[in-house]
Every structure is written in structure tokens, then in C-alpha cells.
Design a protein around this nucleic acid. Sequence first.
DNA 1: AGCATTGTGAAGCTAAGCTGAACGGATGAT
DNA 2: ATCATCCGTTCAGCTTAGCTTCACAATGCT
Lengths: 303, 303
Amino acid sequence: MMDLHRLRLLREVHGRGTVHGAARALGYSPSAISQQLAVLERETGTRLLERVGRNVRLTAAGDVLVRHATTLLDGVEAAEAELAAVAAGRVAGVVRIASFQSAFIRVVAPAIRSLAATHPDIRVEAAELEVEQAAPALRLQQLDVMVGDEYDGQPRAVHADLHREHLLREQIRVILPEDHPLAAAERVPIEQLAELPWAACQPGTGHREMHVRVCRELGGFEPDIRYSSDDFLILLELVRTTGAGALLPDLVIGAGAPGVAVRLPAEGDVGRAVFLLTRRTRTPAVAAVADALAAAATDQTRS
Amino acid sequence: MMDLHRLRLLREVHGRGTVHGAARALGYSPSAISQQLAVLERETGTRLLERVGRNVRLTAAGDVLVRHATTLLDGVEAAEAELAAVAAGRVAGVVRIASFQSAFIRVVAPAIRSLAATHPDIRVEAAELEVEQAAPALRLQQLDVMVGDEYDGQPRAVHADLHREHLLREQIRVILPEDHPLAAAERVPIEQLAELPWAACQPGTGHREMHVRVCRELGGFEPDIRYSSDDFLILLELVRTTGAGALLPDLVIGAGAPGVAVRLPAEGDVGRAVFLLTRRTRTPAVAAVADALAAAATDQTRS
DNA sequence: AGCATTGTGAAGCTAAGCTGAACGGATGAT
DNA sequence: ATCATCCGTTCAGCTTAGCTTCACAATGCT
């Protein structure tokens, strides 16, 4: 197995351009460097350096090795940093979160904010990603936490090897233009919205299926879905400007949506569950992030 | 700096559960393991093991270190593998590509296929990603190659530190329902399509801007964009089923699109350039991937 | 209680890895 | 052209990291 120390020497020689420079920088004699690199070449069975004039230059193979060396040495540094933090009684590490849009804004972002205060040594990386793509990424360690959604009556695939935790449940609301006749009502009977054009997500998404199902079951009509986008904020904007209606979960609305009427359906109880997925063995950092997400979720349901 | 060898011992002790087991597995005496781990604890100033009964167990800090150790040791293995391949005269390494949808299907996928034959030691990872997000990812080494698009008259941001290479230029075509009166014509005058409903990408995208501009400049009308999706294949489907029109680049059509008419606009010359971005210093593997992409692109323009 | 087994420490030995001096090759000034 | 100089490499010699062997305390099984 290659020795990191030798790789460090190689990288230094690459960086300084000369063996003498590397020796001076690292506090060794040039001879030591030269000998160690000779050993490295013997071990790998590859020429890593070639003399050019009275200096040395890396070969293609040496270049490859230096590139790996830097990532490895960076990794060691990260390990030392995290270890030091953990030893000092703090929780540290890198945690990668994936989430769908509305939870990203209402749950993940607040959680990141609070984590910055409570766990400054946790580095959170977050990205928007679909639930279906998340399970393999979790298993491959490319991802640590997934925040997913599940509409009532449309259960997601079960992953026995992953840990699932309920975050919150939210109601689906009817979003109407402010000037719609039913906008004044406390609760809106779905069956009276048969003539309304709708904005919903693309076909094949959970939201689209939910939308169609609600209109059929509670309204007894086939919805005229005229505008489609997977971006909930665009859907909201479409209601405001085009006069279409939409069925959106609480999280999308957040504190309130100006220019539209947000109402509960008169009958039925349609909702969406938001949950998180992690691997079964959680590092302390992942556990802390999961806790922060749970706290942010309950905060969200209170307000 | 921590020594990888000691980390390997720690990982082995973690895996086997006992010092004796690790010693047997690695061909050392138990005493050697014990001493090395004692050194590791002294170096890091942290207790990594604690005795439980007559065995040892990792502390929380030890756990952290083992997790890093495995990634580091895997990294060393990857380095050795790539070095061996390079030393044998082959080009190797991991190359991450990002691309927008149509180039993904028509250019990236064929390139991956040909690379599998010509450079079996290059591991290609590919993802769909927007051009705007790609430049920072390239700089952070999270990405190696970006395939982007640029509509005529809408130049992308210039990145002086990144290398840009032209791949191909394609024409924008008018896509009409088969039963449209103008579907029979060789070339379609845009100004006669003022009454047609359109399908185009979401507002704010390059395609949407191109669409509006073409309708204004060549047609003299404001398009009635009734359907919007950023997925070109959905746009194509919308033309087939809803009777709307669309303006789509060649790559989307590919070999041909059944059920719709593909025509050139009668006047004007509207196109889209497809290019790739890499960092200025290319590894041999990245260069090989870039070449394969260029070859796939010219293949695509021929057919 | 007796015994096997585990982890740890002390003594001693081998070899890895350092220094310093000597050497061959390339460069640039005279 | 010649010589001083600088570079990388090699060799001899020394220090010490790291291994083994042996001894010992602690634990759990019978």
C-alpha cells in the first residue's frame, strides 16, 4: 500500500518544481526526498519523474498520482478536523441533504439556519432531488438525508434497508383567484369547480395524480388541467395571473400567498405526508441534522 | 499528519472486533497493533478505543476516524488502479459530465457508448444539469465536463478561466401537427402561424426567449404560448396530441418524430450552438471524453 | 477456584528513513 | 571554450520507528 508521506513529498516536488525547493519547504535534505521518491517509483513500478535540464518534471503517471495525492491529503485534513471537533465534544462532519422544492424552502432551509447556530462544525450540503433517485444515492453514500413527500393514497416504495421518519402531515388547500365567486366562502365545495381551468404538475407526478383523483372523487368531474409545471411556485403564480385554480399543500403557501385565496375543500380530507430517509446507521452528525429537520417541521406546522 | 497504516489497523480492529483478530488477519502480533493504536491515540490526543469486558470497542471519536479511514483507503486503492492503468499506456480515471436533455440523449449517450469500447478504464458519470449551475461546479472539481447550449443572439456568460469548445450548430425547426394546413409545405412562413397555440419552455429559459423573439421578428406577432414544460420530449408530445406548434432544435427531433411535421422556417436563420466546458488543465481522461463528445456531435450533424 | 483468552507493557532487534559527503550532468557567465 | 555553480542522485553511517518475543494483569467460562 502506498504511503501518504511519500505522496506528500511527490506533491511538494510538483508544486515547487524542484527537489531542493520541496526539501527546503518540508525541512528535509534533498537526498531524503530523492530516496523516498525512488522508493515510490520502485513500489509502483512506474517512472514518476523525469529529468529535464537540471530540474525534474512529473511524467503523465506522476501527474495522475499527484492529483490523487491532493484529494487524499485533503481527506486526511478533513479527518483530523472532524476528529478534533468530535474530541472536543462537538458534533461535526459533512451531511448531504436532498429534498423536493417546498420542503426545501420551508423545512430544510430553516433547519440549516438553526444548525449553523447549534452545530457550527456540521457542514450541510443541500440539493433539490426527486425521491425516486434518492434511495440509490443514499445507499451509495452520495447522500445522507432525503426529505420526501407522499400524497394520501399513493404510498411510496418501501426501502427496508433505509430508515424512514415522519416529519409532518399537511392539508391540501384549494387555491383560487381572489376574484373568484367562491373565494369568499370559508370552505370550497370541489364539485362547483368543474368549469375552472387548473394548474398542476406534469403528468406522471404524485401531485398530478392527486389532483385528478381529488377532482374525480370529491368533485365528480375530470379537471381541465391547462397549465403544467413541476415548480409549485410557478403554479401559484399561474393562479394569480391566469385565473386558473390549483390544489396545493400547506408548505407551498407558507405564511400566506398574496393575490390568491387559500381555502380548505368543503368535504373530504386530503393531505400529504413529509418524511425523511437516512441509512439505518446514523452518524451523530446525521442524527443532529435529522433532529433539526424534525424540529423545523413541527415549527412549520405550528405557524 | 496521520499515518494511513495506523488507520488501516484501526479499521481492521473495528471490523474484526478484537485486536487479536485484526493481528491474525494482517499478519502481525497483537502487541504491534496495540502499540500502533496507542501511538495513534497519542498523536491525535483522543481516546479511540475503550475496553469493554476483555475486548475493545471504538469510541465515538474512533468511529469518526474509521469512517474517514475507509474513504481514504478506498481512495488509495483507486489511485493505485488508475496509476496501473496509466502506466500500462491506457487512459483512466473518473470523469463527470453534465448536460442538458437533448444533448444528453443525442451526444453524451453515444459518446459514453463509444468510450466504453475505446477507453474501458475511464469511468464516466453523467447527470442532467443546467448550464448556469455548471460553472461553479466545474471550478470546485465536482464536475469535469459540461455540455451547454446557446441560442443565436443570446450569448451565455463568458468564463475566462474555463475552456470552451464548439461541438455543433443546429437549426431550429417548426414542429406542426400532421393535419395542419401548412404541414404540406416545404418551408413554413412563420407569420402565418399567428393564430396557432404554442408549446415552449418555462419563462426565463433560453428556449422561451428564443421562441418569443422568433415569433416577433419573423412572424410579427406575440405567440400564444399555452403549454409550457422544460422537457423537450413533452413539448413534442404536446404538439402531437394537442395540436399546438413548437420551435425545436434538430437534436430534439433526432432521426425523426412520428406523428408530427418537421419543417424549416421560410425566412430567417435561427439556430442553436452546442458547446462543452472544461477546466483549462485537462487530464488525459477528460481530453479523451471531450474528443469522444466532439466525435459524437459531428456524427449527429451528419445523420 | 482454575484456566483459557484478551489487551498491554518492557526489552531487544531489524530495517526504514534521515543526514552529510561525494559524484555526474546541465547551465550560464567569463 | 572553460570554469564555477546548481541540480539531482548515490553511498556510508546513524537514529529511531516499528516489529517480535516474553511477561503480566484483567476478564469470562467451566
